[in-house]
Nucleic acid binder design. Structure first.
Lengths: 243, 243
DNA sequence: CGCCCATCTTGATCAACGTCAAGGAACAGG
DNA sequence: CCTGTTCCTTGACGTTGATCAAGATGGGCG
């Protein structure tokens, strides 16, 4: 699609708003030019897959706008959402770095614009600019920390506590008003996917929601959630508060 | 082994056998000299802690000989073994990279020799030699892949399947004979710690062991395990084999 | 040899979660 | 407006693994 790609507007790495949030902020003009020339932009509609688990890694994906989910499936067909990705994130960098096939799938959850950069280019940039590697190092180290935390939580915490935790994470990004402890939340995910985020069945998610409502911790209606008291929610993830 | 390196003998980074297995293989002589001068060697007895979860990161630890366990505890006191570390591994690099406190503890499980390298030195080396950063990048990316795999397994697989999986992992390092499908295994861990590796209680581990014995999959006696048929064990981690 | 202590095992019980099955709600397309 | 489809909820039930409480085992040491 040459110079144009969406509704006829030129997208390039220089004006990409996501760039400063990404690892690529380490690049200088010359390197950016290389990146810009190599990238292939593509729009994805909700449900479309950016790459499949098991596919060979051919490069990395630069997330420009939208929202995508990282999904991992095991041999039995059980799947969980490993996480959500947002503009500025780089997708599929892990498989690229270790030279393995993709260990998870990425699929658009909202309409998304994502650039693809082939392995050779990324490798050139990495060798050329050490700072880029250090940026990636920080990102992947952070991700690793989060993953390890999640391993612990998935074996020690109850569904209820894990769900409370998820709500708190989503709050930071999707809470509309957070004044006196009350806040409202517009969920970016369907029930199924909420369930997949914490590795449970949709039925169990329904019941967890019902319980939280019965206990007055949170009220759900469609995709919007009302939390009347942040402290009540926080108490859900605390150890038995012996007060 | 070069200058030798056991009790009361000079240890240096040049003759360290673990070096070529580690990220530090990227260093040249000059850099090695810097590392060698900065490092502080220390012996740890089983049970001794190298660093505690929550401690600020002051640098990284280079594993020379022995065996250590990485343990993570949550607010309720539940703990799991995130993994085992061996000579050649670098410990605590994650916290160092993101500049956070240690997210887990490291404790010696066997007598171990471990060098400490302060943050300033590592930072200098990283800035000085880009290849070192790329080495770390590979390591941490690999670890992240393993962690993500484990998240999925911990929520989808049964205790039995997770235990079978653990046995297979330990097999690669500790199996004595692996000829015709039969093999024997000398476990490096006590039951408690085996349990902690897959996030279950010791009681449950006992029962899992009993079950595997009743089904003829594996026989346990103290720390040695006899697996009469590898295929039987493999079948434990497969989806319901509709054969 | 016998004792102590830690570790491991066993049993009984219970809550949590998955599974199966059925019914309801929301929504797009005709 | 109806209809099919997908998603969500609810109920009944079974299984899994945690918990609590005793015992058993085994190794180090006097």
């Amino acid at each position: 699609m040459g110079a144009c790609n969406t509704s006829s507007i030129r997208r390039d790495c220089f004006t990409c708003q996501s760039r400063d949030r990404a690892e690529w902020c380490a690049l200088n003009d010359e390197e950016l030019r290389l990146l810009d020339k190599a990238k292939v932009v593509r729009e994805y509609r909700p449900g479309e897959v950016i790459f499949h688990q098991g596919d060979p890694s051919r490069g990395v994906h630069c997330f420009e706008t939208g929202m995508v989910g990282i999904r991992k499936i095991d041999a039995d067909g059980n799947s969980i959402l490993l996480g959500l990705a947002y503009p500025g994130d780089t997708l599929g960098y892990r498989s690229f770095l270790v030279g393995e096939d993709h260990g998870a799938s990425a699929e658009a959850l909202k309409p998304s614009t994502i650039c693809f950069v082939d392995s050779a280019t990324v490798r050139t940039l990495l060798e050329h600019n050490p700072a880029l590697g250090l940026q990636f190092l920080k990102t992947v180290a952070r991700d690793l920390g989060a993953a390890e935390e999640r391993i612990l939580q998935s074996v020690t915490l109850s569904v209820r506590a894990r769900f409370a935790h998820l709500l708190l994470v989503l709050k930071d990004r999707y809470a509309t008003s957070s004044e006196d402890g009350t806040f409202e939340l517009e969920l970016p995910l369907a029930r199924q996917d909420l369930a997949a985020m914490i590795g449970i069945r949709p039925e169990t998610m329904s019941r967890a929601i019902k319980q939280l409502e019965e206990d007055g911790v949170a009220y759900f209606s469609g995709r919007s959630v009302l939390v009347p008291d942040l402290k009540r929610l926080l108490r859900e993830i605390e150890p038995e508060s012996y007060l």
